[in-house]
Design a protein around this nucleic acid. Sequence first.
DNA 1: CCTAGCCATGCTGAT
DNA 2: CATGGCTAGG
Length: 796
Amino acid sequence: MNVPPSRWTEGDAVASPDDGSEGTAAPAGAPLAELNEPQAQAAGHVDGPLLVFAGAGSGKTRVITFRVANLVACHRVPPYRILGVTFTNRAAGEMKHRLEGLIGADLTRDLWIGTFHAVCARILRQHHESAGLTRSFIIYDDADQRAVMTRVLRELELDDKRYPPRQILARIHKEKQEGRTAAEYEPDGWVDDAVAKCFVAYERHLTSANAVDFEDLILKVMRLAEDAESVAGADLRRRFRYVLVDEFQDVNVSQYRLLRALVADHGNLCVVGDDDQSIYRWRGADVRNIRGFRRDFPDAKVVKLEQNYRSTGHVVRSALGVIRPARDREPKELWTARKDGEPVQVVAAANEHDEAAWVVERIRESVARGVSPRDIAVFYRVHAQSRVLEEVMRAENVPYQIIGGTKFFDRAEVKDLLSYLRVLENPRSDVDLLRIINVPARKIGDTTVERLVHTADALGASLFDALVPHAQGASGPAKKSLLAFNDLLQALMREARTAPPSVLAQEVLERSGYQRVLQADESVEAEARLQNLQELVGSIADYEEEAAAGGQVGTLAGYLERVTLAADVDSLEETPRVALMTVHAAKGLEFHSVFITGMEEDLFPFRSADAKRNEDTEEERRLAYVALTRAREHLYITHASRRMIFGQTRYGVPSRFLADVPPSSVRQVATASASLEGGARRFAGLGQPSSLTNPRAAWVHPQDRGDDHAQVEPRPAPARPSAEAPRAPGERYVEREAEAADARDEGGFGAGGRVWHDKFQAGVVVSVDAGADPIVTVRFPGYGDKRIKASFLRTR
DNA sequence: CCTAGCCATGCTGAT
DNA sequence: CATGGCTAGG
């Protein structure tokens, strides 16, 4: 059941993680000899520490997978003795997928491959007792942590205006990221004294709730691994014979200490990273770990991968121009043997609508020329920029997918149901119990809850454990409601022992009255909420199915953990849709064509309106470098002179980073609106050649005629040079898709056709993947796009 | 004592 | 532009 190797060396696979094989690719499944010299050195390295500087697009994922395969296949290392740490679950999935092609699914399954958080959660479930947890501990996400902190502040009678929960939490997280516990925190100044108190109380609440935050996952396992005395510590240090880490530049101090402890006995630690791509300093990542590594492992072999296989010459040189002024860089020089390709287009737009329209117009052209929408991405610095882009995409019928932003799992009803499930799994979770105790309204108001909290504090018990004792001392109506709530939970817990998670979820909705209340509500919102809840139940069922396919039983704990640890980018689909995401989410991905929007001062580099927040232009520069290096063939960078964002209009000047792009690799362009407004004059200040500052020269270029897009001046489809665009510009690729789908239509399904599904009801076919049992992508109002086997669909 | 509806206010990035 | 704190009504 090996995947044909060609599957993973194809550079045009959508958004595949860094893979230098693009373009000049060595044949698939190549032995080490077919890697380039430094790649082979790194991949073939067996014993001892190894540090790989992997420039953007230099094939580092390839090196890591080859090295793992080499260890397993040639050196007979048992796969369960190898740990590979990636940055996202998606990257972990990609790596496993590639390894399946190299060493087969059976061996791959036993490898430990995952994010720091996923791996640590798994270890912590095994060693839960040593960490003071029960096996069913749960992971508190951001919102949960804030809820805990709000309660802590109230308890300590601290003003949440003066001590915003978010900021206190940020301080605490910073401590934990640097490996310190509450006991080790050394306050400096009176603000810190408050933080110290909160820190202690926060930890107490988490422990009592049998819960951990993201930092705890790392910290607790780090403590275990460093513990010379305990059995668990010895076990952890013996467990892995080889440890590999991707994106090492974004590892924080406690993660690094954990790694060091895990390999203490043998030093077989391989780290791969690029200091130029360090973009998570705000999350505790510390590039200095690279220096730390060299100090801690002085005999480490160091390999530099400097040949970029991914991008055209113009793209590589533009990116180098942006990163060169950065301080404290590891000396290295990225180079490419590829042709120059198209110059980078730097586009001046009048405002964010104009910008979005230009981008979408260009996307349509690219697609008409044969670029798959899945190989196109639009980046922005902040999520708030996505709305306008989304609107234009929708209006122009461009299929798109937004990564991140307001997430499905952030919706109130979804969180409610998850809180029910979390309470059933781990009744001591106060945050979850508080969330659902009066949802739907069951006559347990704030006053009653406050008294319950008081009783729980007095008893030193969780809210759940205090429910019955408190109810017994409470007055008539409150007593009744509390006991009824307790009965509900008890009944559901009994159910939880036998029922599969998806069935349990449905039971929760029915027995809690949640569903009834929503059904009684006739509003559109209530209808949407019901649909979201069904979607959630469906997602649990999907998880069970997936687990079953892997020969396991899907548990509630497993599902909850996955939901909390999921990254936005994990959900990036392989369907033919343009991806919209932040630059942060784009790390590790690559696309044929990339649009970077909002390249303006104060937006990119970002500067908060709140001047107190410290800015970090160096990190913004590296972020820009990451953005530019995602492009294989075409790179477009847009900026607008006017932008409505965060509820106010900003007047932006082009980003300083644009001035660092070599003029010889750039073609300046202005949208028609920008030209009319004289926006192109702004170029003059940037030291670009004057020939580029003439707006006419910019926008009459044949390739850029799309400038006067529909929004400015609707235009009948004119005759165009047809060499590049075989179809009239007005023709949308959705129509092309429809034809294509019709052509391979097997079960009477064609794009645009109406179908019926028992659960999701009426929908419209988006596309069809032909096969023995064709998979049809269908858009269901209220459910979004679903990929469904044709046999489950009826045409009508 | 509970509920519902109103108005105000923050917003970078994310496991 | 959504969550949340507050106030008036039941």
